[in-house]
């Protein structure tokens, strides 16, 4: 560095280089420093994606086929997709409704209120509190030896063995635990964008609270609400760890089916089952996220 500092010609050099690199060089040379990044992304993001997509259309010996897709429509895979979609949709709606109400309750609190700060901080931790830890938390709460199970047994004499926790409704409850905070996080900015003037204007013109929600706030918040719901859907649909830690024997959800297919990939005729299932997931998530992107552009128009 010190050489460069002392040598007055060093300053003049870059322009000369640029002049020499006119034409093709001018366009190619500046790209060179970005090559490592694109190589890396290519190897660890694009190649895996291509492997999944191409693998879904290949037989065990490598020739092209469409018959793999047929395994998406067999009883087991179809049921798993049904369960996954139902679970994601249900928890997305629960999370969206409860989260939106909570977000609204927070915004109506005074600007810098203590409660609001605490809840906002708690939400950002809890939205990340997925994974196997969450499974432990609910086993400790509602499992066969869980705190709430024991309390219910001693207070009301209920005889739950806690097995429902491992089924659809148990998973729905557990997923809500990270869906609601996520909704608060993504929906809070939209609610904060609501101006008190809108309400005042409605009242000045003689509108009731109902009219305000039905005609003003509702339509304005709808794109943000729908977009957030879609994001929640994708979030639940891609979740794996919690379900994997809870459910070890049955592969009731698509991610669990993929686990099963990966473990037994040597099975005859199922060589590319994992890839087909993965492709199915990507297609669903991509559609949902595309809708989300479109909706969030619409949201920005009003509440940006």
């Amino acid at each position: 560095m010190s050489d460069v500092l002392l040598d007055p010609r060093a300053d003049a050099q870059p322009p000369t280089q640029q002049r020499a690199g006119r034409g093709v060089g001018k366009r190619v040379l500046p790209v060179l420093p970005t090559v490592p990044f694109f190589l890396y992304i290519g190897l660890f993001l694009l190649v895996p994606t291509v492997i999944v997509v191409v693998g879904a259309f290949r037989t065990a010996d490598g020739s092209f086929t469409l018959s793999n897709l047929g395994s998406l429509f067999t009883g087991e895979a179809l049921a798993a997709f049904g369960q996954s979609i139902a679970l994601s949709a249900l928890t997305a709606v629960i999370g969206a409704v409860v989260g939106a109400v909570l977000a609204y309750a927070l915004v109506t609190a005074a600007g810098n209120s203590f409660v609001r700060k605490i809840v906002a901080a708690a939400c950002s931790v809890l939205a990340q509190f997925g994974g196997i830890m969450l499974a432990f938390a609910f086993i400790a709460t509602l499992g066969s030896n869980g705190t709430v199970t024991r309390l219910l047994a001693s207070w009301f004499g209920s005889e739950s063995d806690g097995q429902w926790l491992y089924g659809f409704w148990g998973l729905a409850l557990i997923y809500s635990y990270f869906q609601i905070p996520l909704m608060v996080l993504v929906f809070l900015p939209a609610v904060e964008g609501m101006r008190p003037q809108w309400r005042e204007a409605t009242e000045t013109l003689g509108g009731s609270t109902w009219v305000f929600w039905r005609r003003v706030a509702g339509p304005l918040l709808a794109p943000a609400f729908l977009g957030s719901t879609l994001l929640l859907f994708a979030n639940a649909f891609s979740a794996y760890a919690t379900a994997a830690a809870l459910i070890t024997q049955y592969n009731t959800l698509v991610p669990l089916q993929i686990r099963g297919a990966l473990i037994s990939e040597v099975n005859l005729g199922q060589a590319n089952l994992a890839k087909v299932l993965a492709l199915g997931m990507v297609v669903i998530v991509a559609v949902v996220m595309a809708l989300y992107a479109w909706l969030s552009r619409r949201t920005e128009r009003w509440l940006g």
């Binding site: 895996p48 291509v50 999944v52 693998g55 891609s238 993965a278 990507v282 998530v285 991509a286």
Partner: peptide, 11 residues
């Protein structure tokens, strides 16, 4: 848009 579980299949 590519869930980790999908990425694993390709990785």
């Amino acid at each position: 848009t590519i869930p980790a579980i999908v990425l694993v299949v390709g990785l």
